[in-house]
Simulated assay, not measured.
Amino acid sequence: MDGYLGSYATLGLLLAAGVLVFVGAFGANKLLSPAHPAEPAGKRMTYESGVDPVGGDWAQAQIRYYVYAYLYVLFAVEAVFLFPWAVIFDRPGFGLVTVVEMAIFVAVLALGIAYAWRKKILTWT
């Protein structure tokens, strides 16, 4: 299929095949699954590590775990931006401007880590 509309026809055939597989899988599931599955008495009860649920369903979560996750994401994003920059740094056309941009980026992140260090967020107690 060549030409302008050929690429759209290929995309349409691919989408139609995907929809057919999707509908076929759900249809086979509907046909092959039992109509009225046998349910034991405790099947719909909540289950956690083999211990029967006792008490209320409200529990406190400490905020420090969210802070650690946030800091991890922050430095993972830094790595995502830092590695490609390091790869193209020595190419022509990426001179002082890219060094200054990356210095500003790293400085902002350094301020963030300094703030977290000062507030003693990074201590595990």
Rank of each mutant, 00 (worst) to 15 (best):
V106R: 01
V23N: 02
L15K: 00
L82C: 11
A16I: 03
L11F: 10
P40Q: 07
Y66H: 09
F83P: 00
A69H: 03
Y47I: 07
Y70A: 14
Y68H: 15
F81M: 13
F89K: 09
V23I: 03
S49Q: 13
F94N: 10
V108N: 15
G27K: 10
V87S: 05
G42P: 00
F105A: 08
N29D: 01
G27W: 13
G56E: 07
A16S: 04
K119Q: 12
A25L: 11
L111S: 12
H36A: 11
A114T: 12
L71W: 08
A38M: 04
E48K: 10
S33L: 05
H36P: 00
V106I: 14
E48H: 15
I63R: 13
F22D: 00
P40H: 04
A116I: 08
L31G: 07
A103G: 06
L11V: 13
E39K: 07
G3H: 04
N29M: 15
L15S: 00
R44D: 07
P53T: 06
A9S: 12
V100C: 06
G3I: 09
G18Y: 00
F89D: 10
Q62C: 03
I113A: 15
G56M: 06
R44S: 14
A76K: 05
A16R: 01
P34A: 04
A76M: 12
L5Y: 14
D57T: 15
D90N: 15
Y68I: 10
A107D: 01
T125R: 15
Y70W: 14
V108L: 15
Y66P: 00
L15A: 09
V100S: 06
L82P: 00
A110K: 03
V106W: 05
Y115F: 12
V23T: 01
V77L: 14
I88S: 07
G18C: 01
V23E: 00
R91F: 11
P37W: 08
A76S: 11
A107L: 11
L32P: 01
E48L: 15
G3E: 02
L5R: 15
T125P: 14
A107Q: 09
L109R: 04
L71D: 03
V77F: 13
G95F: 02
F83I: 09
V97C: 04
V87L: 12
R91E: 07
V77K: 08
F81R: 08
L71M: 05
V54Y: 06
A17M: 03
M102E: 03
Y70L: 15
V77T: 15
E78V: 14
G6R: 03
V87P: 00
L82I: 11
G93H: 07
N29E: 13
V23K: 01
Y115E: 11
Y66T: 06
K43S: 05
A59W: 04
G56P: 01
L109I: 09
F81W: 14
Y70Q: 05
L15Q: 01
G112C: 09
L71Q: 00
F89H: 11
A103L: 14
